[in-house]
Nucleic acid binder design. Sequence first.
DNA 1: TTTACATTTCGATAATATTCGAACTATCAA
DNA 2: TTGATAGTTCGAATATTATCGAAATGTAAA
Lengths: 102, 102
Amino acid sequence: MKSTYCPNLKKIPLSLIFYALSDPVRLEIVQALLEQDEISCGACKSPLSKSTMSHHFKVLRESGLIVKRGEGKVHYLSLRRVEIEARFPGLLIILGKLKGPL
Amino acid sequence: MKSTYCPNLKKIPLSLIFYALSDPVRLEIVQALLEQDEISCGACKSPLSKSTMSHHFKVLRESGLIVKRGEGKVHYLSLRRVEIEARFPGLLIILGKLKGPL
DNA sequence: TTTACATTTCGATAATATTCGAACTATCAA
DNA sequence: TTGATAGTTCGAATATTATCGAAATGTAAA
């Protein structure tokens, strides 16, 4: 299993975090991960192609928001809750409560 | 004095708010506005051209984050604090405290 | 080892974004 | 009325992004 790139979230520019969250598809992924601790890539349902979803996972990973864990054929995504809380205190709590269009 | 477009922040998609904050220049404007209640467009110093800055003001305005108030020749920018707090509770408080690169 | 499955990477394309300078608008002051 | 100042809008160049399908990778099961 290839090691998955996982940047130091403290060094990630704030604007990059906001950029990662600036796409409705990615926002949906993050909000799903707020409800379920882990989700497999394939379970992130979307009308978009697999390669496009993979691109979005990568953006979220490179912004430091998620990690991926491989288990057999399946890759599981999860939020880097502790690090996110350290870099951006309150963000996740707020994100989970937000209403309105994504 | 032309009336300045000011969208209903409740209807703004979350992703658009994040998009508005995904540029370091715009983030800097917002953080400056967290410290000073009002800033004139011209006082938003930057190596960028006036027209580029004007573009960034527009993005921030269309995302619902700021308003502009004209007074003579000068236009003053300010945050829509109350509406932002209603749409995105905690965002501004957090934004003001954040450390690390923009 | 062959096949099937889950996911990523690559290469291309179309859509968006950033940026600039030039031209424009509005306001004030001489 | 003429100029100067503050800012916007327009048009164009360049850079980034989102998206896809095809090909590649890695894993498990037959």
